[in-house]
Amino acid sequence: MKALILLGCPETPSQTPLSIYATNKLVKMGYEVTIAANPAASKLVKVSDPDNHYLQNMVDLDHCLNDLDEGQFDLLLGFVHKDAAASFFVTFNQILQCESIALVFERDIELVEEFSQMISEYTDAKVVAVKAFHNPTPIKVKLDKALKEL
């Protein structure tokens, strides 16, 4: 089984630790995990795990999108905390046509609702939505629940 973790803009502090946390969880569940990220988000993840204790594969977001095909991954897990991230998530979901989880988090609850609606309207992904920014714990708790339900 293959999982793709889709990272957004790295300006939210919770994204990097949660990407490593999610990778660890998914590997333990039997997934081969690839993280797709832009160069800035990639660097933060690589510096956080210099000896690749947790990371398996990392790919450039643009290259990943160019080569993406239906069925290439069995699970899509996307970090959504900006309008652009919601657009990327919907696009990856539409191409891959696989089981998908959107982790929607923002400090502004109205944006959480807006991004969640965008994703629910155009995909059949499970949407995990929470008001959070610096503190990864509320997101982690909801992610754990969503992974248990897979």
């Binding site: 803009c9 832009n38 800035a40 977001l61 900006k82 309008d83 652009a84 991230a85 657009s87 990327f88």
Partner: peptide, 8 residues
């Protein structure tokens, strides 16, 4: 044209 950090 969308980029993660720069929107659309």
């Amino acid at each position: 044209y969308t980029k993660p950090c720069h929107g659309t």
